[in-house]
């Protein structure tokens, strides 16, 4: 019987310890993080999302775009993200504080989208990317090539993706 108690308790503690250390620890460090200006008196960043972008995020989630696209730029010492033009600075935790679910992703079959909004020059750039055959499932355009409401919302969301402002933790150079 003694064995039994040690075993079950020990296994539960072993499972919970990394949760306490890693998850509770990061929540303690980052839980109260909010928007902040890069310098005194500047605008609060990250900016609020336009309403259509909020709807667009739902489309992004529901079509599983996260299975092929990340939304995070690694620091210069860790991979070639910045050298490859995916962003001007590394992503920091503050960039995500407004997002109800964080879509960091962990696989890049397509390019990273953290700064897609600053890369895409116009609405038609975005629609051209979405018309590629790899994106066919679920994205509808009518006969003249006009997007339906879901695609329009998705495009607004994609255009809102940008980490091209200075952040207290990661100033733009």
């Amino acid at each position: 019987m003694k064995n039994f108690r040690y075993l079950v308790l020990g296994a539960l503690v072993a499972t919970a310890l990394p949760f306490t250390g890693l998850v509770v620890g990061s929540q303690a460090q980052l839980g109260s993080l909010g928007r902040a200006p890069a310098e005194e008196g500047g605008p609060l960043m990250p900016p609020l999302e336009p309403g259509q972008a909020v709807q667009g995020r739902e489309v992004y989630l529901s079509l599983g775009c996260v299975s092929c696209h990340t939304q995070q730029v690694r620091p210069a010492g860790q991979g070639r993200d910045i050298a490859a033009g995916l962003g001007g600075r590394p992503s920091v935790a503050r960039d995500y504080v407004l997002q109800p679910v964080v879509l960091l992703g962990d696989r890049r079959i397509g390019p990273d989208l953290a700064n897609y909004g600053s890369r895409a020059k116009s609405e038609s750039d975005v629609l051209a990317a979405l018309r590629k055959p790899v994106h066919a499932p679920g994205l509808r355009f009518d006969a003249d090539g006009k997007p339906d409401a879901r695609v329009t919302a998705l495009a607004a969301y994609l255009r809102s993706l940008r980490q091209d402002y200075s952040s207290p933790e990661a100033p733009l150079k």
Binding site: L7, V8, G10, A11, L12, A14, T15, A16, F19, V23, S26, Q27, L30, G31, L33, A93, Y96, V97, Q99, P100, V101, V102, L104
Partner: peptide
């Protein structure tokens, strides 16, 4: 035995911190 109790604990804690009352931002 360890595997069985570990899953239940991990599942419940993850449900709470990722699904029901999501932790803030990247802590998820």
């Amino acid at each position: 035995v360890g595997a069985s109790v570990a899953f239940l604990l991990a599942f419940v804690l993850a449900q709470v911190t990722v699904v029901w009352a999501p932790a803030s931002g990247v802590v998820q």
